[in-house]
Amino acid sequence: MQEKVHVSGGTALSEQDVHSGEIFMTEDSLDCAFAWDTGVAINRYLTELKNGRIIATECRHCNRIMLPPRLFCELCFKPSSGWVYINDTGVVNTFSICHVHWDASRIKEGEKPYLPAVIEIDGASAGMGIMQLLGEVEPEKIKFGMKVKAVWKPENERTGSITDIKYFKPI
């Protein structure tokens, strides 16, 4: 039986090809922006951040304190039962030391790497982590399970944003 072809097409272009002017290409950017409504739960979350407090919602059916707060519990699909203030301390669940920007370009020599982490906030249910940044810590000193505390912006600089917490620092 004749051997069947498995692979066809996929003509590779090199960087030289791209800049040779021989390969016809067009470039376009969308030139548009988005603005997002915060919704009921996140609206309150941001308002409380501006006040320097972290608020969560509770699901009494699943016995969970949920962060970020949400209008409904995605496990039992019932409306959340109420609001609960929780602490601004927590524990590092996992972390990274990131040397590239959002577009994959490398950070410059001497620039500090990003220190993203999943932090389980004290008072929320176990395992309810949020993504935040770490600060005031040498990257090599970050540990799993490390206790951290929020470093807030001064009250007059807070805008009702997750960046009202500058970062979390070890305690």
Binding site: F34, W36, I42, P68, C98, V100, W102, A104, L133, T163
Partner: peptide
Amino acid sequence: DAITERSLHPNLLW
């Protein structure tokens, strides 16, 4: 998440 994560300037590698 546009509101609770994106202002940290995350990238997918994170």
